[in-house]
Design a protein around this nucleic acid. Structure first.
Length: 843
DNA sequence: ACACTTCACCTTTTT
DNA sequence: GGTGAAGTGT
């Protein structure tokens, strides 16, 4: 079991002000950006072009040369880790005062503002912050109580829709007004109900942090004035990943002084699913006509080979301003592309290669990336087998574990008595005889009388609970009363008491299973993290009295300590909960021992490693199946690939596997189009030596009856000529799934030849860099036989999944592919590529 | 109310 | 392959 590196072990940052001059080691463009005197500034910063350096130096420059107070600067970064790093780097230039500045993520900054000033938009200071799973649960309660069918409106789908509304700053009322169909109206009603419940629970979700903050800045003149006056300079990193709410927040808060610097790279925009819109880069120029623009296009990170590969891949995106990075390093080694037979042999190759590399370079300088978290498991296994230590970023998150969520809920209930969702989580955990019936009664009572869940819990007799339930309810109340009696002064002490006195710990101990043992260990880990947090706060107090602080405590800067009383255990717990909620995946990236880093491509943004492995480069996985039908989503996948490649400084390995186990069922893939987009002369291609492994054939039949794109690719390639009625041994259909699983009886050789090309080139030929193109291992996906000749703008069509729609545009791309955009009244406008044979028919 | 089962769905990606 | 919802039996 891997625990996250301790997130609260406050890095005792070396804050010696070095003799570094602010303008040392900068090129002309960088200097220009750093010295920009004021007004709007857009820095278009390619990968590895010294973006962070520019931002850091600019802040230092403002403080050192422009007489700007550190407290008049608001700097927004993408993760808490990036924020801490930036504060540290600034502190090296201007001293410790930098550590008390507002350098934070959007979400942290907004949470802070809402804590202090949220009351006028209905947010009370003690609010709980719900993560996506909390929010989804609450949305589902709202759906259920409105009597809406969960089959047609899935909790996740609803949560996503609501989240999208919030990202676009659309209120429930507006959503209802805009609704054109019943389904949309239903979603809007659930949205309204969900909002009401959030407010009743004094809780906000992630999107609210921004949305409510924008509402506050828009509507409360006094508050707006306060922040606009205060922040004379606003700087935003990763601007290409801002959504409308974030953009609006930035615009509002910087409006008075208009000294706004944004830094970004449209080619690295990878958060569209979260509402990010890289066009915000262009909009910035339109909105601020007097904006200065600085372009940083010298890459100081990667070798020419790596950079050329990245440039080649990204140039396939059509909706893009052409720009090319120039490398400052030599040519470097060729990129290695490894074609594995299976996901297992892919993982073996990665582990073996790391083993070899580790004799000449530190494991810290090596990273392995993948598209989805689920891919990490096999790689982990092989690394363990090879005795290579690793750390994993994200994945099954520590704070997502059930026991941790329960413990957090105990704390939430302690600090926010109205938090119904958290009450529900812990009220019968451990079992107290307060089952579903009792819970419903309590919740209904609370709602009817407009009182908090806790207040209702105190009145079991009025509610009419059974005797056993009544006793349990009163017992629970007194548990929290005792916890709050002043005897327990720190987060750790309260937490320990609650877990002990509630019987939660005992419940796990009594269970005595291997699993419950693990859960107990996790709880101990949480308590120790709480302890670290307490220590950090206490140290902070000490330093603060000396007028200085070397420690970074999440959220509560000394400057604004009026809202945070370290003597109050309530405030401490609230701070702890907030730090935990807003923790980013990539915030855990530090570990002490030397090890390889594993993470998703998304988490990799902003980082760099000497050696990078990108695994799972297969059609359907990367680009992901879910993005393959929509051109703009496909382009986002390509940007993700670009981000991955440009993380590598010296060596880049790309791997793809012929077969891969998905949902415990083997499936077959063809190599990713991204591999083909890399010029052959940059590549050294290697093919798996091993005989295809047995397990691919012998694996137990599952019930994967999903008609996936992979299956289709697979079917098209391998089995057009296999008769499903063939009763011979070769053709016998095995497996009892609803759909015969034809893949089970085919030999790997058939599959291999059909998917990868019929006369698979010999290993030697493939390894020859120059012959790679001449001997393509990879056969193209099905030739586009999709006929668009009768399509015209305005044609009415019918789509298998989205129903009737109207063609709004037809674009022929430079590769000959045709993009068909269709407006669906029941859905958004979608774009389909003819080469992908979309299920569209003229009507 | 709870313990035990079977079943569907799942995986993009994250503040 | 793992999880949470829903169903079944005490």
């Amino acid at each position: 079991m891997t625990f996250p590196a301790n997130i609260f072990a406050s890095t005792n940052i070396g804050v010696d002000k070095t003799n570094l001059s602010i303008l040392d080691d900068l090129n002309e463009s960088q200097k220009q950006a750093v010295q920009h005197s004021g007004g709007p500034l857009l820095v278009v910063a390619g990968a590895g072009s010294g973006k962070t350096r520019v931002l850091t130096r600019r802040i230092a420059h403002l403080i050192g040369s422009q007489n700007v107070s550190p407290f008049e600067i608001l700097a927004i970064t993408f993760t808490n880790k990036a924020a801490a790093e930036m504060a540290e780097r600034v502190s090296k230039l201007v001293g410790r005062v930098a550590l008390r500045m507002w350098v934070s993520t959007f979400h942290s900054a907004c949470a802070r503002i809402l804590r202090m000033d949220g009351s006028s938009v209905g947010i009370k200071s003690g609010f709980s912050i719900y993560d996506v799973s909390d929010a989804t649960r609450l949305v589902d309660y709202a759906r259920r109580d409105l009597g809406v069918d969960s089959k047609r409106f899935s909790p996740k789908g609803l949560q996503r829709s609501i989240s999208n509304f919030k990202n676009e700053l659309i209120t429930p009322g507006q959503a209802l007004e805009n609704a054109q169909m019943d389904t949309q109206a239903t979603v809007a009603k659930i949205y309204a109900e969900y909002e009401q419940r959030l407010r009743a629970a004094n809780a906000v979700d992630f999107d609210d942090l921004l949305g409510k903050c924008v509402e506050l800045l828009r509507e409360d003149d006094e508050v707006r004035e306060k922040y606009q006056n205060r922040f004379k300079h606003v700087l935003v990193d990763e601007f290409q990943d801002t959504n409308l709410a974030q953009w609006e927040f930035v615009r509002l808060i910087s409006k008075k002084h208009n000294n706004i610097t944004v830094v970004g790279d449209a080619d690295q925009s990878i958060y569209r699913f979260r509402g990010a819109d890289h066009l915000n880069m262009q909009r910035f120029e339109q909105e601020y006509e007097d904006a200065s623009v600085v372009v940083l296009n010298t890459n100081y990170r990667s070798t020419e080979n790596i950079l050329n590969a990245a440039n080649a891949v990204i140039s396939n995106n059509n909706s893009r301003h052409k720009k090319e990075l120039v490398s400052d390093k030599g040519i470097g080694e060729p990129i290695v592309v490894y074609y594995a037979n299976s996901d297992r042999s892919e993982a073996q190759y990665v582990a073996n290669t790391i083993n070899k590399l580790s004799t000449t370079q530190s494991l810290d300088s090596i990273a392995v990336f993948y598209r989805t978290n689920a891919q990490s498991r096999l790689i982990e296994e092989q690394l363990i087998r090879n005795g290579i230590s690793y750390r994993i970023i994200g994945g099954t998150k520590f704070f997502d574990r059930r026991e941790i969520k329960d413990a957090i809920s105990y704390l939430r209930v302690f600090s926010n008595q109205s938090d119904e969702a958290s009450w529900r989580r812990i009220i019968n955990e451990p079992k107290r005889g307060l089952g579903d019936t009792s819970i419903s009664k309590i919740a209904t009572f609370a709602r009817n009388y407009g009182i908090s869940f806790r207040k209702a819990l105190e009145k079991p007799n009025e509610i009419g609970l059974s005797k056993k339930a009544s006793t349990a309810a009163l017992g629970l109340c007194s548990l929290f009363d005792v916890a709050a009696n002043g005897e327990y002064e720190t987060v750790a002490k309260v937490l320990e008491y609650l877990l002990e006195a509630s019987g939660y710990k005992k419940m796990l101990e009594d269970e005595g299973s291997f699993e419950s043992q693990g859960r107990l260990e996790n709880l101990l880990e949480l308590i120790s993290q709480a302890r670290e947090f307490d220590i950090a706060i206490d140290k902070k107090i000490e330093f603060a009295e000396q007028g200085d602080s070397g420690l970074e405590i999440p959220t509560f800067a000394h400057e604004d300590s009026t809202i945070f009383n370290p003597e109050s255990v309530f405030d401490r717990i609230q701070a702890f909960l907030e730090a935990v909620s807003l923790l980013a995946e990539s915030d855990q990236a530090n570990a002490n021992d030397e090890s390889v880093t594993l993470m998703t491509l998304h988490s990799a943004k902003g980082l760099e490693y000497s050696t990078v492995f990108i695994t799972g480069l297969e059609e359907g996985l990367f680009p992901h199946e879910r993005s393959m039908g929509d051109i703009s989503e496909l382009e986002e996948e390509r940007r993700l690939c670009y981000v991955g490649i440009t993380r590598a400084m010296d060596r880049l390995y790309l791997t793809c596997a012929l077969s891969r186990i998905m949902y415990a069922t083997p499936d077959y893939f063809s190599p990713s189009r991204f591999l083909k987009e890399i010029p052959a002369e940059l590549v050294n291609a290697i093919e798996d030596k091993e005989v295809p492994s047995e397990f691919m054939r012998s694996s137990a039949p599952g019930t994967n009856n999903k008609s996936s794109r992979y299956s289709r690719i697979y079917d098209d390639f391998a089995f057009d000529d296999i008769d499903p009625n063939d009763q011979s041994e070769q053709g016998r259909v095995i497996g009892q799934g609803k759909r015969p699983r034809r893949r089970d009886f085919a030999t790997d050789e058939i599959i291999r030849s059909r998917i990868w090309g019929s006369d698979s080139a010999s290993k030697d030929q493939i390894s020859d860099v120059n012959e790679f193109e001449a001997q393509p291992l990879i056969s193209q996906p099905p030739e586009p036989d999709f006929d668009t000749s009768e399509f015209a703008i305005g044609s009415r069509i019918s789509h298998e999944k989205y129903g009737l729609g109207t063609i709004t545009s037809l674009d022929t791309h430079k590769n000959g592919d045709i993009a068909i955009s269709v407006d669906f009244p029941t859905d958004r406008t979608r774009t389909f590529m003819a080469s992908l044979n979309p299920p569209i028919e003229l009507v």
